[in-house]
C-alpha cells in the first residue's frame, strides 16, 4: 500500500522560484506555494503540512518571523530556510531553533537532500 505523499509548503516572494520548486518536486511531493508570510499562515491554518520551506528575506515578514508564528500553530513542523546571504542571518541562532539553513542559489541535490532529511527526522 502506497503511503500518502508528503505535503510541503514553499514560501518565497519570487513567483519564478515557487514555480520551479513546484515543477521539480511534483512527482514526489504535494507542493503548496505561498508568496508571503500572511498567505503562508492562512495555508498553515487549514492544512497539515509535513514541512515548510521558506525564503528568509521577504517583504513584510521575514522567514524567521514566519517560522515563529507557524510554530505557534504547528509546534512540531520541520522548517528549511533559504537565504541569499548567509552573512545576513545569525546562523548559530537559526540552527539552535531547529531550522535547517540553505544558501541561495541552491541546486536540486542540496534542496532534495535537505527535504528528505527533514522529512525523515524526528520532529519534536
Amino acid at each position: 500500500m502506497s503511503q500518502a505523499r508528503p505535503h510541503i509548503l514553499y514560501v518565497d516572494d519570487e513567483p519564478h522560484n515557487l514555480m520551479m520548486f513546484k515543477i521539480m518536486f511534483r512527482r514526489v511531493y504535494d507542493v503548496t506555494t505561498a508568496t508571503g508570510g500572511q498567505e503562508a499562515l492562512n495555508e498553515i491554518k487549514g492544512t497539515e503540512f509535513d514541512l515548510m520551506v521558506t525564503d528568509f528575506k521577504m517583504p513584510g515578514m521575514n522567514g524567521l518571523e514566519l517560522t515563529h508564528l507557524v510554530r505557534e500553530i504547528r509546534p512540531s513542523i520541520p522548517v528549511i530556510m533559504v537565504t541569499g546571504f548567509m552573512g545576513m542571518v545569525d546562523e548559530e541562532d537559526i540552527k539552535s531553533q531547529d531550522i535547517e539553513l540553505i544558501s541561495k542559489p541552491f541546486d536540486e541535490q542540496t534542496i532534495s537532500g535537505a527535504i528528505k532529511e527533514a522529512l525523515s527526522g524526528n520532529s519534536f
Binding site: E14, H16, M20, F21, I23, M24, G84, F85, F106, E108
Partner: peptide, 24 residues
C-alpha cells in the same frame, strides 16, 4: 555587492532550477 547579490540571487536560482527541470 549586497544589492547585486540580492538582485542576482533569485534569477540565478530559478535559472539553475529551471535547467534541472528542463533536463528532466
Amino acid at each position: 555587492t549586497a544589492g547585486i547579490a540580492h538582485e542576482i540571487n533569485n534569477p540565478v536560482n530559478f535559472i539553475q532550477l529551471g535547467i534541472t527541470n528542463l533536463s528532466k
